[in-house]
């Protein structure tokens, strides 16, 4: 049964209250390493959002018209990953053609989007929750925006932290994680925004 969730509610929920990173822990590896520089953080956020939306749509279509009718559900992991890898590959070529500067600044991170758990995660959540097409697009787009928001905020906080007296053992990933923890707590404050239908 397709759940009767209002797409607008789903959009806000995927950005704020069920943020793919701050609530579902997905998409963290590249998050922690790139969050130092605002510009590349923002570029990566945009790339992730685009990849998420496109792959979610493609995976939904494959799920509905190929995987389920042919009873191939147990192969969905590999099918989704192949779609994601192919999309990232094509996107890389497009970015290189359109804006070599952006391609340069994103550097290594583009191919890393393929193994970004958030992308596969969104596809799997979409399948488990049995979303309709509109819900899938909204959920994927919202998750991308949420991830983007989180990474840009984190980069901004990190810039301030550079001047702060952080203990040696905490420098780097330690303080980054604690910062993310506070951000996650702050986002929980958004919970009051939504009502279940």
């Amino acid at each position: 049964m397709v759940p009767g969730i209002n797409p607008v509610v789903l959009l806000f929920a995927s950005i704020f209250t069920s943020n793919i990173l701050l609530s579902n822990f997905l998409g963290m590896c590249s998050f922690i390493s790139i969050s130092k520089d605002m510009k590349s953080a923002s570029g990566l956020g945009l790339a992730v959002t685009v990849v998420l939306t496109i792959t979610a749509m493609l995976n939904w279509a494959l799920l509905q018209y190929v995987i389920i009718p042919l009873d191939l559900l147990y192969l969905r992991y590999i099918i989704f990953i192949i779609v994601i890898a192919a999309t990232v590959q094509i996107l890389e070529m497009v970015i290189d053609r359109v804006s070599p500067a952006l391609y340069m600044s994103l550097g290594i991170f583009l191919p890393l989007i393929t193994v970004n758990c958030a992308i596969l995660g969104v596809a799997l959540f979409m399948q488990i929750r049995n979303y309709s097409f509109i819900q899938t697009v909204v959920y994927a787009f919202g998750s991308g925006l949420g991830w983007w928001l989180a990474i840009v905020t984190l980069a901004a906080i990190q810039k301030k932290l550079v001047k702060a007296p952080v203990p040696a053992g905490l420098k780097g990933p330690g303080i980054t994680l604690i910062t993310i923890g506070f951000m996650a707590m702050a986002f929980i404050g958004f919970s009051g925004m939504l009502r279940v239908q």
Partner: peptide
């Protein structure tokens, strides 16, 4: 019974 949970269907 079946109904809308927070993220999907509860049955």
């Amino acid at each position: 019974f079946q109904g809308n949970g927070l993220w999907g269907t509860i049955s």
